[in-house]
Amino acid sequence: MTLTTAKTPAVIPAPAGEPLQADGGSHGRHSTKSAPADPSGVTATAQIRAAHNGRTTTVPLLHNDDPFHLRRLRARGEQARVCVLGAMSAPLGGDRLALDITAGRRARLEVTTAAATIALRGPTTTPATYDVRITVDDDATLHWLPEPLISTRGSTLHQTFTVDLAPTSRLVMREEQLLGRSGEVPGHLTTRLIVRRGGRPLLDQQTAYGYPAPAWDGPAVLGSHRATGQLLLVDPGLGTPQEPHVIDDDPAEGHAVLTPLADPRALIATAVAPAPAQLRHLLDTALAYAYTYETPRPDADGEQ
């Protein structure tokens, strides 16, 4: 299995760039769809469904919903690829955004985003919600590899990731969170991650950063780090329990741990770093290490 990931710039600039403007621009903020809690907010649900047609993976369902725009990318072998555009123009306060991703039986799908997703205050301090619902059916593989989520000053965003995996499915999922742009105080960001495998809970986690989360920048939670992320790898091929692996060659560049969950067919890397480039490096290093677990390991690999 190979995986390539886009480079993240060391410094995330203030939101800009055509054609997707951070302040709404041509996509507008005045949706006529079902009324959300806050009248200035947008309610949107985009959907992606991949299926295997007997030869290769196709993407029969690609449902756009402002501000989400979905684009098919060139397939990589049998793996279909979809890029989410426009998430960077949202969420603003009051928005209720959802993204449904399904990899049907035997499908191989990769979903990425075109740029960092930036949580902005918008015209209201009402919290925004962003729910990503992922379903991976039997013998299917999903790679969910978005660019980072950036929490900016004054924003409040509640993210939820709900992942339902069939027992024979595979998943690679990366989440990166940046607390504030360069030198900026972050907003309030909560993230709930719920992963089930064969209907049984595999992982249940919640994080809360930025005021008013208590001591989020204290020495038990993030300390001075402003970039944090996780990489979750679920693969039925990971049959035997693996030893955890710590990545902390240079503490000034952040550190990470790669560890099996209680279900040894799942590994998770958790990383903290001063900035996004170091965070991505740590997660890439963890992923490369994780793949060594899938092949017979040499006797003298130095770990223990």
Binding site: R192, T207, V257, A271
Partner: peptide, 16 residues
């Protein structure tokens, strides 16, 4: 509740 703290997780494994 499922609240987690990245540094407690990372340093827990380091310390072990």
């Amino acid at each position: 509740p499922a609240a987690s703290a990245p540094l407690l997780d990372i340093t827990g494994e380091q310390h072990a």
